[in-house]
């Protein structure tokens, strides 16, 4: 009887652990993202990526449509190339679409903002492996302050 109680309690312990693990896996670390569906790859070159990281979100109007798969440096012109993994269900963006690196809140995470371009005749859709031409780099606070000071200095003279 006592032995049964021991086994029962250990069983509850194991179940609790599995529940904790599931919570961490699904709700906290969102392990499902990579399995959520097929995805295709787009590339974007930026002058400066700020503190963008792998697995940062790619968002369109607040909807997460993909993730940053990897960040590399182009071997020829030494600019950062960001590999974006976009979910297969979000497809058909025109070539004129643009991406920019945005920040959520003042100190928040950086993410890739996706802005679909206008679609008219002669503009193809983005396909797997395409490069996005229109990119806006991350805002670097130091540069902004530098510009601000420079402008002020100019005014006074």
């Amino acid at each position: 009887m006592n032995k049964y109680k021991t086994e029962l309690m250990v069983g509850i312990f194991v179940v609790l652990t599995v529940a904790a693990l599931l919570l961490l896996a699904l709700k906290v670390a969102n392990q499902t993202m990579s399995n959520e569906g097929e995805s295709y790859t787009l590339y974007a070159k930026f002058d400066n990526i700020g503190s963008l990281k792998t697995r940062s979100a790619v968002k369109l109007g607040g909807v997460t449509i993909g993730r940053v798969e990897s960040i590399n440096l182009d071997k020829d012109d030494f600019t950062p190339v960001v590999e974006l993994s976009i979910l297969e269900k979000y497809t058909g963006f025109p070539e004129t679409s643009s991406v920019s690196i945005l920040t959520s809140g003042l100190l928040g995470e950086q993410y890739v903002g996706f802005q679909p371009g206008f679609s008219f005749d002669g503009v193809a859709e983005l396909k797997d492996g395409d490069y996005l031409q229109d990119t806006k780099s991350a805002l670097v606070l130091e540069d902004l302050i530098g510009q601000f000071l420079f402008n002020r200095g100019g005014d006074e003279n």
Partner: peptide
């Protein structure tokens, strides 16, 4: 609360 957590926490690195 959940979504920013999800985009920040990495399974292999953190958990």
């Amino acid at each position: 609360y959940w979504s920013v957590m999800q985009s920040t926490v990495e399974w292999d690195k953190d958990v």
